[in-house]
Nucleic acid binder design. Structure first.
Lengths: 251, 251
DNA sequence: CGGTAGTTTGAACTACGTCAAGGGTCGTGG
DNA sequence: CCACGACCCTTGACGTAGTTCAAACTACCG
């Protein structure tokens, strides 16, 4: 029953200081809101972005910092968290290349409402909020795309509210694993591996519970053969079992 | 200790079928995203809207309906809810005149993610999602305003997630009362009256708890002299007590 | 004035948090 | 390359906040 295998996660050891120009253009063109722009336009927009490398664990910005820039992930994973004075963390989202975060629009005295931290070494593009606003005013189709993305995030946030309000921990964790599997899953021999370093603590912070409870639930899942897991990684081995747990109407 | 006063809520008995043209223009001009448009432009935009009256309790649309229109409140209050198969409700937001809801952007096979229900008799303006998108493409400044509004809602939703994840029921209810007080509060002799019919059930649905627990907590608050309450109404009588309960760091 | 719908309170139960201790994995430095 | 220390994970025992079920009470409407 022991599973002390080495972590199956890709290390993706990039030189964090370098995003090749090709990569930048590719990232920008893949970002949902620049879809449909010409190569010329993309190149011009690209010139407004600057890039920064971050190492695993680095904070990109802190909750409460003056909000001035919009960020987009070129490579790596970023997590967004909020905190409580009592020291509890809330993990709001895990973002992948092509996704954006930070300040979409310049506002007076605006603060970042969350902290952004690199979960892996990461290359991050960023642009001043004013510059981005100028781009949006110039290309109205972009704002519509941004709107769609925001609408989607709002829907997700509301779904999280529903989960926290109405479902027991076991279901919330199963649901979260499935969502992570869809977004970050990578098919491997061991199962659908969630490609991001994810501790029990993180999982607890995503589902509004404690490290210990998250650990107990995951242990149960593993005993039942639904997941395979180790230090900072999880793979889903029995997708249907998790979905049927989530969908069953019983309390 | 008895408080069986008549409900102090305004009844606002409007004829739900009528929004005067002046009212419509005023509503639209007050809506954050049309701020700064000329009277001419407003009039033109106004022509795209149609109006409908709803009586207290009427559903405007249901979660899962095909999403096709954007709504704006002229008069009255609207609540947005989600549901679970087990029958539990989640109250996501209470909206007031000038606020919008529904479908911001037309998308293939899009469904409303929540149910919209009139909390009072209400006059609601609405516009087809395609028409609104055309307006946004024509007036890029509008999309930026819409973006700001969405960003604000996302922040609120994340705050709700934080509340549900990290705070005990008592604090969540106190916090919710304060937010409601800010948004819907009306200074009266009895205190800051929350101007909307709000049952214990609703309050439970807003804070992820049950009717009974909401009732118990509110009873405590009333015993301590922090609120005055009756059937479907609450007034805050001791604002500072609630804020200090919310802010204290103890668990 | 009677009925419906909202509110209150009690008592029993339970999911989950808390506290505590022990074991495994990984990276770092010798 | 090995060994140490830091960090992560697991499991147990216990306490309690909040749910559930049930019953009585009260405001409001027709």
């Amino acid at each position: 029953m022991k599973n002390h295998r080495k972590s199956p996660l890709d290390s993706h050891h990039i030189d964090p200081q370098v995003c090749s120009i090709d990569l930048r253009l590719e990232i920008l063109s893949k970002a949902p809101f620049f879809a449909g722009l010409s190569h010329e336009q993309l190149k011009e927009i690209n010139s407004f972005f600057r890039e920064n490398g971050f190492q695993k664990g680095d904070r990109i910005y802190y909750e409460g910092d003056a909000a001035s820039r919009l960020y987009a992930i070129a490579t790596g994973r970023v997590k967004l968290t909020r905190h409580t004075p009592a020291g509890k963390n809330i993990l709001l989202d895990i973002l992948v290349p092509g996704e954006f975060f930070g300040s979409l629009i310049p506002e007076q005295n605006d603060e970042y409402p969350e902290t952004a931290q690199a979960l892996t070494d990461a290359c991050i593009l960023s642009i001043g909020a004013e510059a981005f606003q100028r781009i949006m005013l110039l290309h109205p189709s972009i704002s519509v795309k941004v709107l769609l993305a925001l609408k989607d995030r709002l829907k997700n946030a509301h779904e999280t509210v529903r989960q926290l309000s109405a479902y027991a921990v076991e279901k919330r964790i199963a649901h979260t694993l499935l969502k992570l599997g869809e977004k970050l899953g990578e098919r491997q021999e061991i199962g659908l591996l969630i490609q991001v370093p994810l501790s029990r603590d993180d999982l607890g912070d995503m589902t509004g519970t404690t490290t210990e409870t998250a650990s107990r639930v995951i242990s149960q899942f593993q005993k039942k053969g639904w997941v395979l897991t180790g230090r900072q990684w999880i793979a889903i081995t029995h997708w249907e079992a998790l979905t049927s747990l989530v969908d069953e109407e019983l309390y």
